[in-house]
Computed example of a mutant assay.
Amino acid sequence: MGSKRKSEDSISRGTPDNTEKRVKTSTGLENAGAISSESSFQEQIRCHLTELEKLIGQMMNSPDSIRDHITEARHDIVKAAAKLEKAFAKTKDTSSSGGNDSNESKHSEQNFDISGTPGLPQLPPIKDKSLEKAVFTHPGVVGDCNTISSDLSYDRLEILGDAYVELIATRLVWDRFPNLPSGRMSQIRELLVKNETLAEYATSYGFDRRASVPRDHLNQPKRWNKTKGDIFEAYVAAIILSDRTNGYDVAERWLSQLWIPKLSGLDHVRPPNFQCKEALAKKIMGKGVKLKYIDERPPIQLKGGMQTFFVGVYLTGWGWDNQHLGSGQGLSKTSAGDQAASQALLNKPLIDEIAAVKRAYDAKTKTERATLNQS
């Protein structure tokens, strides 16, 4: 009983030397470098992960006296994770040094599954392994770009990938939203190609875990987000470059499957017929009469760069001065104005009253003209 209490006290104090020793013993990370074959490395790594998960689980299920000191013990877990990361790196180095492309491909697929993430389409492979390595290498980790070939990083690939991504997105929006004005097409395309969207996909596919980047990037969220977006664009370029025959079709099919869920909620942006403005004008417009469509409040910014506009229609004439007839909202000023006209037409008592005044005026004008012609 006394020995058990002594053991718990030792853990709760979070003594660095003791905790580090316990982590090393339970995970056996210090022996990772001694494994020579690729399959043995990977088996050892799986064991490391299992043991590390057990260690964390035991700590989380410990009595309060232990759980209160998890922050101290976390330092040792981070050390263990760093050793695990080195084991992964050694596995990759061993695979590359063997000069066997098939083994390198097998290793990549085992550690980074391309069979499809839940909710996402299957990730197309990059057939050229040198391009694949460049995709996940930041220019900042290969030295001076002026002295070292940029083919070692994603520097050039990202530029080409950016163009492909924008082209494929434009074609998708063009096909899905026929007759949509160019301004609205640009807004929807931005929703698909903006950096936040691409970085989100990169994270979902585990690109961030495969990337070699300067350490300071990880502590700068905006910069890291931009880097993940660049890696995603480079990946698209590498798919196409590594398969000159079918690469573009593969990339287009994959990106379209990725983007369709984002577009499915935008079917309402298809342009209306814009007939309500014409119907309202035909019913109440006349000489000296003015219909004004005015912004009633500032537009609201939506995700993806789109906006919601708020427009009201007002009448001056037939005895009314700046009379409000109706209000509407839409993803463009044109659609918001048309909705305002639609609401005005639904306000039948007022519109019928205005129309009656117009008819009386037109009848009077017609009679005066007939009398003038007779004389």
Rank of each mutant, 00 (worst) to 15 (best):
residue 356 A to S: 12
residue 73 A to W: 03
residue 157 L to A: 07
residue 249 D to Q: 13
residue 129 K to M: 13
residue 316 T to K: 11
residue 329 Q to A: 07
residue 69 H to Q: 14
residue 79 K to A: 01
residue 83 K to N: 05
residue 32 A to W: 04
residue 99 G to L: 05
residue 260 I to N: 13
residue 195 N to R: 13
residue 347 N to F: 05
residue 60 M to H: 11
residue 276 C to K: 14
residue 271 P to E: 15
residue 315 L to F: 10
residue 162 D to V: 03
residue 121 P to Y: 05
residue 347 N to K: 03
residue 321 D to E: 15
residue 230 D to L: 11
residue 46 R to Y: 01
residue 133 K to G: 00
residue 136 F to E: 02
residue 304 G to H: 10
residue 100 N to D: 15
residue 193 V to R: 00
residue 340 A to V: 01
residue 105 S to C: 09
residue 224 W to F: 15
residue 133 K to N: 07
residue 310 F to D: 05
residue 196 E to I: 14
residue 347 N to T: 03
residue 34 A to Q: 12
residue 108 S to M: 04
residue 375 S to D: 07
residue 20 E to Q: 05
residue 249 D to S: 15
residue 126 I to Y: 02
residue 210 R to I: 04
residue 318 W to L: 12
residue 132 E to N: 03
residue 333 K to G: 02
residue 192 L to C: 09
residue 319 G to A: 09
residue 248 Y to R: 12
residue 262 K to R: 14
residue 355 A to N: 11
residue 36 S to N: 09
residue 4 K to F: 07
residue 83 K to A: 14
residue 81 A to C: 11
residue 130 S to Y: 06
residue 27 T to S: 12
residue 189 R to A: 05
residue 99 G to K: 07
residue 320 W to N: 02
residue 34 A to P: 01
residue 324 H to D: 03
residue 177 F to V: 08
residue 201 Y to M: 03
residue 116 G to I: 12
residue 142 V to H: 02
residue 34 A to I: 03
residue 97 S to C: 04
residue 350 L to K: 04
residue 101 D to W: 01
residue 358 K to M: 08
residue 116 G to R: 10
residue 240 I to W: 00
residue 175 D to F: 05
residue 131 L to Y: 08
residue 224 W to C: 05
residue 362 D to R: 00
residue 81 A to W: 11
residue 308 T to G: 03
residue 243 D to N: 15
residue 64 D to I: 09
residue 95 S to P: 00
residue 83 K to P: 00
residue 70 I to Q: 01
